[in-house]
């Protein structure tokens, strides 16, 4: 009995994702990543009848406030989509070379976020001390002569609530002002709304 079970388990591990009905790309069904110490499988909801419901199915957004954002933030910072975010998690985050940053308020982050994201609320942009700490976390160090050493700054992907959200822009602007290298920043414009609209995995903080 044990043998049968372990064979079944082995088989399910080996074939994980192979028979997924809803894949991410043609050659990728899922990616594993750690989120706060737990291994999370990022894949897509497999129920083809599933509808987006709740907050992120909302389409009435007041502007001023939630105005549509341009496709690119500036010509030095690359805009990416879901496929690139998943690949970034697979290659950069899993190899400790990069981190995904959720720029929304903590409350929203706790309600659900992209697995492996750390939360740096945009509101910290104006807090010099907090920004200094954030830069240290992201690998920026101080040279002995007081200048910044950005050589070991890690790659980051920044996102917020959706294409109508300007919080990523505020955080990226603050990081650039601090001297963070633009070529290590990527902007996921679709944000949490588009992530959810494609049925991709999210995690809550309890």
């Amino acid at each position: 009995m044990k043998l049968i079970l372990s064979i079944a388990l082995l088989f399910s591990i080996l074939s994980a994702g192979k028979y997924d009905k809803v894949k991410i790309t043609e050659d990728m069904s899922y990616v594993f990543v750690y989120h706060k110490g737990h291994a999370i499988k990022i894949h897509r909801i497999q129920d083809i009848q599933n509808h987006l419901t709740g907050t992120y199915a909302k389409i009435s957004y007041p502007c001023p406030g939630m105005c549509i954002q341009p496709i690119s933030f500036n010509d030095k910072i690359e805009t990416i989509g879901e496929v690139e975010v998943v690949k970034f998690i697979k290659n950069q985050v899993n190899n400790k070379k990069g981190v995904v940053i959720d720029a929304r308020p903590k409350k929203l982050y706790n309600q659900g976020t992209i697995p492996s994201s750390i939360n740096i609320p945009f509101s910290l942009s104006k807090n010099t001390k907090a920004m200094d700490n954030i830069l240290t976390v992201l690998g920026v160090t101080n040279n002995s002569n007081g200048t910044l050493n950005i050589e070991k700054a890690i790659e980051i992907v920044v996102y917020c609530n959706g294409p109508w959200c300007s919080k990523s822009k505020q955080l990226i602007t603050a990081l650039l002002k601090k001297g963070y290298p633009a070529d290590k920043i990527q902007y996921y414009r679709g944000g949490f709304q588009m992530w959810k609209s494609l049925g991709l995995t999210t995690v809550k903080t309890k």
């Binding site: 997924d20 009905k21 809803v22 894949k23 043609e26 897509r44 909801i45 497999q46 129920d47 083809i48 009848q49 599933n50 509808h51 987006l52 419901t53 199915a57 959810k196 609209s197 494609l198 049925g199």
Partner: peptide
């Protein structure tokens, strides 16, 4: 509002 279109 459907999230999961079948692949292929």
């Amino acid at each position: 509002s459907l999230t999961s279109r079948p692949s292929p």
